[in-house]
């Protein structure tokens, strides 16, 4: 597959502060790419530069084979953007917002109505077409923004923290729409988030901190590389469990009479569990997460 986004040695400074420090990465066409990191890591600066809102300090940023600095108009015509903050015209209706977008992107007048119906159907908002934007809920506004960003059929859709401030159910719905879009339309999706679970859907994750990319790969590969699965077991005969673990060369920590065992592969625990099952009073198994990846690399949680 070809790369639709190429970033080489990208640096962005504000005065003496380096918001993004010599970052390089590539995004495959038709994939979902996630930028993961805490607030202030440099994610939004990168996305804003790719969206032509900010100018780079140095480096090369290309979308669809075109350098961003010299081809702003072209780049703007092939990307769709959903910003972190709400950017709808709240004094107008959903349809009026979408029509304005079509005019800005010079969508042929003959297809505007058809295109609006199509994107509203995609995000299940057809019956809200005539509603004033300020009468919609936060989640619906976000869906209108996603619909709007698709009107000109972009090659890349940038989503900057698209679910910030939304309740868990709405967040899940938004991601359903995004995955549906990527699968049905083959659009490349470039998203930033500080929610671990949201990055799990992506084909590639770049973990960012203090303006640098500190890890870059498929979420499963990162988790395998940086994390271990964890089992927490309580037993009525702890001495017996202790002996069993030692027999299998497994080390553990104890916390409130619970054995906390970290393993690369949970199958190693299967024999112990089946042998000891009648004595187990409580058991919890947790797979490694992207937060663990971040914790492992930086020594801190991503929300800190």
């Amino acid at each position: 597959m070809n790369n639709i986004i190429t970033v080489k040695n990208f640096t962005k400074t504000y005065g003496t502060f380096k918001a993004v420090d010599n970052v390089s990465f590539e995004v495959e066409s038709g994939s979902i790419f996630a930028f993961l990191g805490p607030n202030g890591a440099g994610k939004s600066t990168t996305i804003n530069t790719l969206c032509t809102i900010l100018d780079k300090t140095s480096g090369t940023l290309m979308i669809d084979g075109k350098e961003i600095g010299q081809n702003k108009d072209y780049i703007r015509s092939v990307i769709g953007v959903v910003f972190q903050e709400q950017t709808l015209d709240v004094k107008m209706t959903v349809e009026e917002n979408l029509k304005m977008h079509c005019h800005f992107y010079r969508v042929a007048k003959s297809v505007i109505n058809e295109r609006i119906d199509f994107v509203l159907h995609l995000v299940d908002l057809t019956k809200w077409k005539k509603a004033m934007v300020n009468s919609l809920s936060g989640g619906m506004k976000r869906r209108v923004e996603i619909a709007r960003s698709l009107l000109h059929l972009p090659k890349v859709l940038f989503l900057d923290e698209p679910t910030t401030g939304l309740d868990p159910q709405t967040r899940a719905n938004i991601w359903d729409y995004i995955v549906k879009l990527q699968k049905e339309k083959g659009i490349t999706i470039f998203l930033t988030t500080h929610y671990m679970d949201e990055a799990e859907i992506s084909d590639k994750v770049a973990v960012m901190d203090y303006g640098k990319i500190i890890a870059f790969d498929h979420p499963a590969v990162l988790k395998k590389q940086y994390t271990r699965d964890k089992a927490m077991i309580s037993s009525i005969v702890p001495e017996q469990l202790n002996d069993l673990l030692l027999q299998h060369d497994l080390t553990y920590a104890k916390e409130n009479n619970r054995f906390i065992i970290e393993v690369n592969d949970l199958s190693k625990l299967t024999a112990i569990i089946s042998e000891h099952q009648l004595s187990i009073t409580d058991m919890e198994v947790r797979k490694g997460t992207l937060n663990d990846v971040f914790l492992e690399i930086t020594g801190k949680n991503i929300r800190e």
Partner: peptide, 12 residues
């Protein structure tokens, strides 16, 4: 309100 950002990221 943020609306200008939507306008400015367009090819306008």
């Amino acid at each position: 309100s943020g609306y200008m950002k939507e306008v400015l990221v367009s090819p306008a």
